[in-house]
Design a protein around this nucleic acid. Structure first.
Length: 427
RNA sequence: GGAGGGAUGGCAGAGUGGACGAAUGCGCUGGUCUUGAAAACCAGUAUACCGGCAACGGUAUCGUGGGUUCGAAUCCCACUCCCUCCGCCA
């Protein structure tokens, strides 16, 4: 949620931010609602003040046994009706205002490059070179089938297209990746591991910014009105909803493994082969709740925490900054990490590290007290994958394939997998 | 699913129609005392919205929404959530 003060005092900043994002602006409409809302409140508060005063005096006189005449009561009844009318009017205005306000995205930071879409995202740096091979490479779906570790047809049999099953060492590899990443972030980067529900209430998923605008991409259980999480970011954002944290409690670093559920309606027809884009996948997510003063720096370290994972796995990756037209709804500044997949020859997005500033904190009412005597203020929240598991598996399978058809497991994972190779298997 | 109990400030907990934003205790902040600390004592200590340059003033908030009333934490209705027990189940 955008700050209403900013909207009143500096609408031009918002207008510019929306323009840079390529979004239509509802700012003028919101300002109009805000104006009439305030006028109504002034009028209504005065009526309420009157009513309180007179009611008090009636009570005082009655308790002394004094006479209270009917016309006075009748007059106050009329005031009561007027108040009720105004209350309703204000409620309507607030509803309409909130409808618009909840769909206004975060404002990009001033140093975010201006651009239209992902084609305008600058590559900031690249780590490692694309590996060279002396034999023909297989795609991960071919490798997965040949080694009998990824079963796409049976995934489809169970749940439809874009679902998959893992088997044998493939399944073990996934489990090893999850366990290793969680251990790595908790031990090396000081994150606290949390296990959270995968189904959340509407207000929680509103708080993280996925509703009302992106309901299309979510699975919804209508019977109990619960939503399947598209990322652990959603329940972690809700973890401290409605709380006022002490400055000494900040920063809070959380890491969680959850499955992520996405309908992927908007991507119909794209990336249909393999496990690159699926309806359910595992992900290890990092999350930070921080003092606003520090969020710029916290974004840098968040990114570097995610990069460490790529580096330890020996994967070639690059950092791409998202331009104003491509950053997500809730984000003020984001970097993608893309790893190179040698088999299908493409860069795979495995993490987006974002500073959401106070946007989610406002939606979810997550505040802190800068010091003991000051008013609560909104914290800043940041999130980033560390990392998305299927795409890491794609990269491992494709980049670590050997001429004999086997897959070598990166050194760092071996204590977790208990094996150093999948295969060999005849080609 | 069945039965019962509950929801009040940071926490505990009183309050059954009128001066209640709410007793009291704890916690926290400041002060007095002390070489220092503790104890004791004194004072302060919710949030949001609206008006105002500000000081400050007003309004709302006792789980949520509606109703009764001149007036609701308190009465009525509906809902939600939490707890206990029973049943079922991992």
């Amino acid at each position: 949620m955008i700050s209403i003060e900013l909207l009143r005092n500096n609408p031009e900043i918002l207008e510019q931010g929306l323009k840079n994002r390529g979004e239509e602006s509802s700012i003028q409409k919101i300002l109009k609602y805000d104006d009439t809302r305030r006028k109504n409140i002034v009028e209504n508060d005065e009526l309420k003040r009157q009513r309180n005063e007179v009611s008090k005096s009636i009570g005082a006189r009655r308790s002394k046994g004094e006479f209270v005449n009917e016309s006075e009561l009748k007059l106050m009844k009329e005031v009561g009706t007027k108040i009720a009318d105004l209350d309703n009017e204000i409620k309507d205005i607030e509803f309409n205002m909130h409808e618009l306000l909840s769909r206004v995205p975060n404002i990009p930071e001033s140093d975010v490059p201006i651009g239209k879409d992902e084609n305008d995202n600058p590559v900031i740096r690249q780590h490692g070179e694309k590996p060279k091979f002396s034999f023909d490479l297989e795609s991960h779906w071919d490798i997965g089938e040949r080694l009998d570790i990824i079963d796409l047809p049976r995934g489809a049999k169970l749940s439809g297209s874009r679902f998959y099953t893992l088997k044998g060492l493939g399944s073990k590899l996934e489990r090893a990746l999850i366990a290793w990443m969680l251990d790595y972030h908790t031990n090396k980067h000081n994150y606290t591991e949390v296990s959270v529900p995968y189904l959340v209430r509407q207000e929680i998923i509103y708080g993280s910014g996925n509703l009302p605008k992106f309901g299309d991409n979510l699975y919804h259980d209508t019977e109990d009105d619960l939503w399947l999480i598209p990322t652990a970011e959603v329940p972690i954002t809700g973890l401290h909803k409605d709380e006022i944290l002490e400055l000494s409690e900040l920063p809070k670093y959380y890491v969680a493994h959850t499955p992520c559920f996405r309908r992927e309606q908007a991507a119909a027809g794209r990336d249909t082969r393999g496990i690159k884009r699926v309806h359910q996948f595992n992900k290890v997510e990092m999350y930070k709740i921080v003092d606003p003063e520090t969020s710029d720096h916290e974004l840098d370290t968040l990114l570097s925490n995610a990069e460490d994972i790529c580096e330890e796995l020996g994967l070639t990756y690059r950092i791409v900054q998202l331009c104003t037209g491509d950053i997500s709804f809730v984000s003020a500044k984001s970097f993608d990490i893309e790893i190179w997949a040698a088999g299908c020859e493409e860069w795979l997005e495995v993490s987006t590290c974002s500073n959401c500033t106070d946007f989610q904190a406002r939606r979810t009412s997550l505040r802190y007290r800068p010091d003991i005597n000051s008013k609560p203020q909104f914290v800043h929240t940041l999130n980033g994958s560390g990392l998305a598991i299927p795409r890491v598996m794609i990269a491992i399978l494709e980049n670590y394939q050997q001429s004999d058809g086997s897959i070598v497991i990166p050194e760092i994972l071996r204590p977790y997998t208990g094996f150093d190779r999948i295969g060999p298997s005849k080609l």
